[in-house]
Amino acid sequence: MKNWIQAIIAVAALALPAFLMGIPPEEGLKRLKEGNQRYVKEDLQHPNRGAERRAELSSKQKPFAIVVACSDSRVSPEIIFDQGIGDVFVVRVAGNVVGPLELDSIEFAALYLKASLVVVLGHESCGAVQATLDNNTQDIEAIAEKIQPAIKGVDPKAKGALEKATKDNARFVADYISKTPVISKLISEKKLLVTTGYLELKEGSVEWGF
């Protein structure tokens, strides 16, 4: 009898939409990578943006990924990953830094919405990182305070300093998130993957997991 029950549950699970089931972290990463390739090639699908999707999400949401991105107007995760309504839970702040408020949002999406992937997305020509490198942080002191520990080993006069600092900052943030109690537990249970991305603005392509 037990085997029959398990078989019925398995068949029912296959019939459920991804919206209800959630997806493994690796599948979520694959979706974002494929979406970014469509963006680069200008072969956008604009998925999950119609009336049916709006109705489906009117009382609940189940995003498969969390993207921690910069507030920069050129960095819109739903666009650069060609995703639709309800696919991506986005946390945006200049310099893609994370403090208590941002961490609460990330934990909420991971724990209660069951998102299985976190991407910390830095980008080319990040003004917040550049200002911190140049020690020109008037009016962004709180953000610069979060960036400074990540980039302390970067020579601001070296070639490629901004790109290195931006990637170091994304890695620093990803590492911080990964070591927090709630997130580290989900990672240990293989329910969550935390990775990094770097957006090249002109080409639109994202470099992953540096």
Rank of each mutant, 00 (worst) to 15 (best):
E56W: 10
N136D: 13
L199D: 00
V40D: 05
N135S: 09
E102L: 05
L57Y: 07
G153K: 13
L113Y: 13
K164W: 01
V120K: 09
W4D: 15
I143C: 13
K164L: 14
Q61C: 04
C126E: 07
K152P: 00
M21P: 00
K146N: 13
I177Q: 14
G122F: 07
Q138P: 01
L20M: 13
E207N: 11
A131P: 11
F89V: 02
K60M: 01
I177T: 14
D87R: 11
K179R: 15
A109W: 11
E189I: 00
S188I: 04
L201P: 08
Y198G: 09
P63D: 07
T196C: 11
S58F: 00
E141D: 09
L103M: 15
E124P: 02
V206G: 09
V173Q: 13
K114R: 15
Q148C: 01
I85E: 04
V98A: 12
R171K: 14
P181D: 13
R38V: 09
A109Y: 07
V194P: 02
A131N: 05
L192K: 10
E102S: 09
G160I: 03
G35M: 09
G204T: 06
S116M: 05
K185S: 15
A65C: 05
D139R: 15
S116G: 02
G35Y: 10
K164D: 13
G22E: 13
E207L: 12
V75W: 01
I106K: 10
K60L: 09
K62H: 15
R74G: 09
A94L: 06
G160D: 01
S125D: 13
P181I: 04
C70G: 11
L201F: 03
P156Y: 05
A174E: 12
V129Y: 11
L186N: 11
Q83F: 06
G50I: 00
K157D: 06
A115K: 04
P63Q: 10
F64V: 03
Q45R: 10
F19I: 00
G50F: 02
L14Y: 07
V98R: 06
P25N: 12
V182G: 12
D134A: 07
A131K: 02
S125L: 07
N136Y: 07
V206A: 04
L162V: 07
